[in-house]
Design a protein around this nucleic acid. Sequence first.
DNA 1: GAACGTCGTCGAACCGGTTCGAAACGACGC
DNA 2: GCGTCGTTTCGAACCGGTTCGACGACGTTC
Lengths: 340, 340
Amino acid sequence: MATIGDVARVAGVSRSTASYALSGKRAISEDVRRRVKDAVRELGYTPNAGARALATSQTMVIGLLAQFLEDEFAPAMLQYMLGVSNTARELGYDILLSTEADGRNALRRMTDSRMVDGIVLLNVAEDDDRLPILRDAPQPGALVGLPADCSGVEVFDLDFEEAGRTMVEHLHRLGHRELVLVSQPEHVVERGGAYVWRLQNAALAEARARGITLHAVFGPAQQPEVGRALHGLLDAHPDATGLLINNEAAAAALPTVLHERRLTAPADLSVVGRYSDEFARTFSLPYSSIESAPDRLGRMAVRELVRRIEGQVGPDEPHVVRFVSPELVDRGSTGAPRGD
Amino acid sequence: MATIGDVARVAGVSRSTASYALSGKRAISEDVRRRVKDAVRELGYTPNAGARALATSQTMVIGLLAQFLEDEFAPAMLQYMLGVSNTARELGYDILLSTEADGRNALRRMTDSRMVDGIVLLNVAEDDDRLPILRDAPQPGALVGLPADCSGVEVFDLDFEEAGRTMVEHLHRLGHRELVLVSQPEHVVERGGAYVWRLQNAALAEARARGITLHAVFGPAQQPEVGRALHGLLDAHPDATGLLINNEAAAAALPTVLHERRLTAPADLSVVGRYSDEFARTFSLPYSSIESAPDRLGRMAVRELVRRIEGQVGPDEPHVVRFVSPELVDRGSTGAPRGD
DNA sequence: GAACGTCGTCGAACCGGTTCGAAACGACGC
DNA sequence: GCGTCGTTTCGAACCGGTTCGACGACGTTC
């Protein structure tokens, strides 16, 4: 494999001159620059990434930590990963991926050994045990998900409070007076999935403010339990006319459940979920939903991370905490309640 | 950040001695070894990955190329990625992920700049344009998917011929005489997805040999087209009693279609698919299926790749081409045809 | 007591880049 | 003819590890 020494020899210059000719960091005569570039082409030279990283202490790699925890709906996670990965590439960075269950271990390895210039954490819990490590690390970090303590990192998340309010408001306006909200399983919440609380509490408050009833329940995240749970739920609340779903597995299982009960949306029941458009297409879900925008969040996280890495924003400048406003995508699954 | 020089100074030895004390590649007195280890702990020393890669020309990183092409069913791809990633970690390797549409570009970058010790290619087409680049690369490569030319790389794939035969045999034995096979969209085949052909041709041959009818059709891979296509298919072949599905999107859409037609499996129609158990759970598919074993294939690819990387198998020893035998997972969706 | 082997350690070189300071060179003004 | 300046190039040092050859100390052996 050709090194810059080979290039220099072929071009008849010193190694440093070859380096400058390629980087353009010093003035180089047109003649020499051409000779160096020709030599590069002739030898098929590509700089050695390790050597460059050593010399510049820049790896041009971003670490991506994605934990696939129990009851995490994998296809949903994938979309965040793709948003991160594709954006990183556009900005000239590669992705070092860890899917290790022990995220702390992976994080330490990546940061301590200087394999990456920055870190993106997916699926961040309220009291995420990876955060103290990330804060101590010399590399900047960006999160998708809202922890209790946002200091020292860039944070991006959907505005789940607004999402909860929007869902309730939307159905109330259509005339619904009794709603059911299906959240993620309780142990996802206990693990620190605070976004579940945020949406649920905002929805409850909004319902109270509007004087309507909202039954909030945790649904399982696995088949076939979730199907049974949905049946039980609809049995338990026969007067509910609106269904809110903040649980990917439940959303995916809903078409079958409604078919089994001979119900159609919106004629018999208005349904609104919270998942991405891509998710809706993959699972052919016909329900209106709050767009969770995973690709957009991943993209924003990487963008801001790279700005930090490249020093376009100073180390003392405040960190970003940004909430994406939820948009309701109308797929026609909501309407006036049947009784009206 | 502490370097090995710092460790050496604290321990009162030379850098080389510190290195040997840690690697164990030369005899070191118990006293010195302890002092070095203490210094490591005290300073929180972790070797710099770039420096080590430069010195040893080993990065302990494996490149993973996953292209998310049009009509590729993303959740299915994710399972291969996880198999690769998790196995790599178990063997001490990290994953450099590329999801770039232009796989050749990503491959060249990874290999030329020596960022990785080996490469795993997912979703390999019959005449995959990444293969010539991989063969020329100094790093070994492993594929998931069967190309026309297997030379110079390790190849792992499901035995799609046997899968096709098994599906037909299974339904024939139960008494079915007219079957329909839904394959991937035609342009996936044209792009080089030869596995579609392999399964289809073997199924057709097996049906012929058994004197039964098999209608093979290409199905779309997107919603809502695939649902309509399934309806059209069932309309067109009212006498078919068995349905074979080699198309993830069609499999995912089938429960709804059957509900809409008021059909249940196996009472009205026997159904057998080709997808992984994980996929079946994610989409709550109740159909018996040929297990496509993505995690196992990813695992095997990485295992063999690492054996090559670490020289446990010599450069002149022949490369592996291994087909995983398909297993039929019985989920009770097949039985004797209704007419019997 | 000289020759020899073993063990533990050190210094130096190397991996392949980048970058700083200085030197060589021609042009210019005086 | 000499000093000065700007442009272009070079040599050396450095990033942080690993590894080879050598060397000193010590214990055996004849």
